[in-house]
Computed example of a mutant assay.
Amino acid sequence: MSQTVQAIRPDQEVMTRQRLPYFMGISGDSVASSGLSMHLVIIPPGARAEPHIHLGYETGIYVLEGVVKTRWGDMLEHEVLSAAGEFLFIPPGVPHEAINLSDTSPARAVVARNDPSEQDNVVPYAPATPGESAA
């Protein structure tokens, strides 16, 4: 197989398992990458991702616009804010959800993963409540 340098313009919106619109960029499907995917996510005003985990891969996020609260942990009991110009790291298997804190403007971020598939290893997550184990 010959290797080719390719430019990708993410111009088609895809609704993800997290219930957020992605614009797909680099992946195993788009450019036959073997260990990387990279996309643009737009969180509409006031919207939030469905809680989920990433099986077996790390995720790096760079916020381009807006402020996003990421809740994480078995009960989504922890939180971190990410603003434009900041990076966020999510280890494999950590339950989390992202929330756009603005009711009027979308938040935009570049999402990179060390997994070439876009959604195959994204799994919905039901947060545990005190006294029970996570689903």
Rank of each mutant, 00 (worst) to 15 (best):
I53Y: 03
L76K: 04
V14P: 00
L76T: 09
A126N: 15
L88N: 14
V123T: 12
D103P: 15
G73W: 01
M15P: 00
R113V: 07
A128N: 04
P130W: 05
L55Q: 15
P10S: 09
G46E: 03
W72D: 11
V110A: 04
P127M: 00
R48I: 01
I90W: 07
T16D: 03
A83F: 07
A134L: 07
L88C: 10
V122D: 13
Q12K: 12
S102I: 07
G66K: 02
M75F: 02
H78Y: 08
E86M: 12
A98C: 14
D120W: 04
H39D: 10
K69V: 11
P116I: 15
M75G: 11
T70K: 01
S34V: 15
P21I: 06
G28D: 13
A84W: 05
A83D: 05
A112K: 02
M1C: 09
L36C: 11
T59N: 08
T4N: 13
N121L: 11
V122E: 14
A49I: 00
I90S: 12
L40S: 02
S2E: 14
A84L: 03
W72C: 10
A7L: 10
D120A: 15
M38W: 03
G60Q: 09
P106S: 14
Q119M: 13
P92G: 08
E65R: 09
A49Q: 05
S133V: 14
V110L: 08
M38V: 09
Q12W: 00
A126C: 13
V63W: 00
G131N: 05
A7Q: 12
D74I: 06
S27Q: 06
S102G: 06
A98K: 05
A128T: 11
R108P: 02
P45F: 01
Q119L: 11
P51H: 02
Y22K: 02
I99E: 09
Q6G: 04
G60T: 11
S105L: 14
V80Y: 08
E50W: 02
D120Q: 14
R108E: 10
Q6Y: 04
R71F: 08
G56I: 04
S37I: 04
E79Y: 10
P92Q: 06
I61W: 03
V63G: 00
A98Y: 05
D74M: 11
I26Y: 02
A47E: 05
V31L: 08
P44E: 12
T129A: 12
S133H: 14
G25T: 06
N114T: 09
A126K: 15
A49V: 00
I53V: 12
Y57Q: 09
F87A: 05
D120C: 09
E58M: 03
G85W: 09
W72F: 15
P106C: 05
I43G: 01
S133P: 11
P127S: 01
Y22M: 03
R17Q: 06
I53W: 02
V63E: 00
P95D: 05
F89N: 10
S117T: 15
A47D: 09
V31F: 03
H78L: 07
H52F: 02
L55M: 13
V123N: 13
T59Y: 01
P10N: 03
L55E: 15
L40W: 01
V63K: 00
G66T: 05
V122N: 13
V111C: 07
A47T: 02
L40R: 00
E50H: 08
D11Q: 05
S34P: 08
